[in-house]
Design a protein around this nucleic acid. Structure first.
Lengths: 336, 336
DNA sequence: GGGTGTAATTTGAACGATCAAAGTGACATC
DNA sequence: GATGTCACTTTGATCGTTCAAATTACACCC
């Protein structure tokens, strides 16, 4: 390495050095099997010698492949859930790098703006594919991308859509099932659920795991409350359940944020979470770690890796198999 | 818009449509003053008509400017502080977009790997500039970038470095000064500081504001403790102060994480934060909002905007004026 | 000896933009 | 009427790579 210092080495420079044509050098890089072993080694030596690195823009101009994956970043303020995306961002970048791709960010005020950004980024930057988060019911973005034949994968399953496309998601029901089963084993008889107001697919999913577990355990009391999002919502919901006919001794929550509220309410009433009551949150945010809150952790790194796997398949003109992945979360036990 | 559908419109297509040469179209976009008003309008109409968008890769190949800003993403697990970066990421992307730039992410295991990534990204992708976070004492990355003449700006001041380069930072001392002054106004006589173990520039900075404020207020008792990072560290530190000779009635903390620990310890002792004791954290993380913790908020959006302003100046061959920006944080008051 | 096939390599053109230099008129100047 | 100047516009070359087609070398066969 280290010879052509000031200006980058080009394919031609390597070719001269190795006494072959540019195309042969190109072949060594892209189709090694087309080149004889002897010249291959000679060219590789020259590449090493000059510190040659292919120029992506030039390659893109010819192949119309940028090796860039677009990802929308969201404004902070989703309560604690932003941390999950933060983690996802890092994992996605790492996974992409393993396959010589890069993640490029963009912002958008709403779905409409996001679709405009798709058009813009594919036209100007030549972004190869997109990863979508925050999928929701009747998501126009998916329709748009499908219509425009743009490769994409989503972190979030198709809530109520019939279109078939590559997606990756975490099995929320399996998560709350894990939590509920754990609480049952610990001897709890009345296990409450604190969730979000109905309407969100994610919320229904997480509730379902708790419900079905109690169901198959033959537990009749299934107190639940869903007031509004956030810690204050969790507090109010917990208060309602504790004042109800069958006050729970354990709580499964749809988010860490809600769980923090439940813990606060318990403390307020002189109960010690972990000792005389149990609380389990969802998402395993740093706040959970800081407060000693047990929580359900999503396998974010795996989600990111799956997204990249799906995209690579689509970009290679194949259909990813399986087309979708529903990954199991795991339970992280702490004091509560 | 909407005419050349399948394949993107090129400069040549627009030229044909407007009955001019490619170069004239290029001039309309890049140097409008070189073109007569009449043809300018005609060309703009053609651009609109064909929905033309310039192809960045082609432009980059000729100008060696990619309009891409590189940013290293860090693995989560910095406690709560990751959220600040999350916010920064979003703001930086938004600021970059306003000037037709894009943010590209990369990962690195350590500073060494980060420098290798600089080399790689500039050679292959042609990244124009980098934004650095987590600057620290004797930061090799800065030396590397300066030596290689690569444009960059840092979020974080040059701790102990004598090299002069564009940086943006938040005035931590001003933050703790705000907090301490507020607590003095509320009538507190003994205000403690809970910080990190010595050695971190950020930590010293935040401590300095608290100390100097008490100093100029003529307050003699200045109890402080710094055990280790995280909520547990905050608890232990608070316990030590409360058991000391001059137990504080108010606490200024170097992070929200530490503040959470202080609040926990106070509750443990039957004290109600907000009523008989005050606690102020730092960074205004979502956890602070959720727990009702007062905190010092960094003006992240402004930091990002300044970084972009600096980079643009450097990329235009100018020296940013001022070369560095030290922005004031603000105090967010909640229950505690 | 000449045709045929195959593997390895080279050559010319192209991707879509910008740079540098040259070309075109209109009008003023001597 | 030749020359110069100015504002505007066009032409040719180029950035670094890959595609498609052409070329070379050599072994094989009748």
């Amino acid at each position: 390495m280290a010879a052509g210092e000031r200006s980058r080495a080009t394919l031609n420079a390597v070719a001269r050095q190795a006494n072959v044509s540019r195309q042969t050098v190109s072949n060594v890089i892209n189709f090694p099997e087309r080149v004889s072993e002897e010249t291959r080694l000679r060219v590789l030596a020259a590449i090493e010698d000059l510190g040659y690195r292919p120029h992506r823009a030039a390659r893109q101009l010819r192949t119309s492949r940028s090796q860039v994956i677009g990802l929308r970043v969201w404004p902070p303020g989703d309560g604690l859930s932003g941390v999950v995306l933060d983690h996802f961002l890092h994992s996605l970048t790492a996974s992409a790098e393993q396959h010589d791709h890069h993640v490029m960010l963009f912002t958008a005020a709403d779905d409409e703006a996001e679709m405009a950004a798709y058009a813009d980024l594919t036209a100007t930057v030549g972004v190869d594919a997109f990863v979508l988060t925050h999928t929701h019911h009747d998501d126009q973005r998916i329709r748009w991308l499908a219509e425009h034949r743009l490769p994409f994968a989503t972190f979030g399953r198709p809530w109520g859509s019939q279109v078939s496309y590559p997606w990756v998601d975490v099995d929320g029901a399996a998560g709350t099932r894990l939590a509920t089963e754990h609480l049952l084993r610990r001897g709890h008889q009345v296990i409450g659920f604190v969730g979000w107001p109905p309407g969100s697919g994610v919320g229904e999913d997480r509730r379902a795991g708790w419900l079905s577990t109690l169901d198959s355990a033959g537990i009749g009391h299934r107190p639940e409350a869903a007031v509004f999002d956030g810690a204050e919502g969790g507090r109010v919901a917990a208060a309602r359940l504790l004042d109800g006919d069958h006050p729970p001794t354990a709580f499964v929550c749809a988010s860490d944020s809600l769980a923090v509220g439940v813990v606060t309410e318990l403390r307020e009433r002189g109960r010690h979470p972990g000792a005389d009551a149990s609380v389990i949150g969802f998402d395993d945010t740093p706040a959970a770690g800081v407060l000693g809150l047990s929580s359900i952790a999503q396998p974010i790194a795996e989600v990111a890796a799956e997204c990249v796997r799906h995209l690579r398949a689509v970009l290679d003109g194949e259909t990813p198999t399986p087309l979708s992945s529903l990954l199991p979360p795991r339970l992280v036990l702490r004091q509560t």
